[in-house]
Write a protein that binds this DNA or RNA. Structure first.
Lengths: 152, 152
DNA sequence: GATGAAAAATACAGATA
DNA sequence: TATCTGTATTTTTCATC
């Protein structure tokens, strides 16, 4: 087989630690998983190259960075026969944090972060302009939790 | 005012760099934002303490870690008068990556990651058991992009 | 913002299985 | 052949000035 869908226990342990704290040092990781620093280093490099680790990010407080308003925007193509290149057509809009292609009534769900209701209105206009879609918006009132590490 | 909702340009620059790559070194950051290493170091510490930086994570390939199936699960309380402690009641379920309280027909939207349709079925059972809610599930077919850094 | 000691990252040679 | 360990060197972190 070419792509086993389960991770070796040691890689699993490393990845679990890094998911919890993306800035954990190799020394720290080595202690936690019971390997030498070099071995951990090599494994992380390999995990990065294999694409298991896709990158490292910083969790930011959306209020502090001036984007306190989060919303889900569902898209329905106006012309069902139109070419399906919506993600591309929308990718330049930086307020869109994520784009999911979904099964169900709608075709896509966008996760967006904006500064204000006016910003949301502006975003929706941009979306409708860039892609010929109708939109349905669900405003997020609060976020009890987000970005929790997966259970491995 | 106690909490300015916009970030100082230098902090903004630092945060932008860290959002793009959470493992960027202080030396690297210093070069990019045009400050001394110590100044950057101090600022990052302060941003962490102030809660602007909430932590660091690793973006993982969901397939590689054995959780290839993503879904949105919307919750509607069965008893509208019941105490609203759903996030707490569900927080022990590790397949739930995020929980959003939303305006609209439903009360909450969960983002979940599971191994298979059977895992999804199991998760929905767990959710309905832990909270007296009805659920509506939208399966994610593909993820064109996710976790893009915010525009600062 | 600079300095310097301590810690960490990285490259590499050799051991191991 | 793969991955490990230990060592040496460079780079980074971090407290102090």
């Amino acid at each position: 087989m070419t792509a086993p869908h389960t991770l070796e226990p040691l890689d699993q342990a490393i990845v679990r630690e890094l998911a919890e704290d993306g800035r954990r040092s190799y020394t720290d990781l080595a202690e936690r998983v019971g390997l030498s620093v070099s071995a951990v280093h090599q494994r992380v490099r390999r995990l990065e190259q294999r694409g298991v680790i896709r990158g490292y990010t910083t969790r930011l407080d959306t209020e502090s960075i001036g984007l306190p308003l989060t919303a889900f925007v569902s898209l329905t193509p106006i012309d069902p026969a139109a070419p399906d290149d919506y993600p591309q057509r929308l990718s330049h809009i930086s307020a869109i944090e994520a784009c999911y292609s979904v099964a169900g009534d709608e075709s896509y769900i966008l996760l967006v972060r904006v500064a204000s209701p006016a910003g949301l209105e502006d975003l929706l206009r941009q979306v409708r302009e860039a892609a010929k879609v109708s939109t349905r918006t669900t405003v997020v009132l609060s976020t009890p939790y987000e970005g929790r590490p997966p259970a491995l």
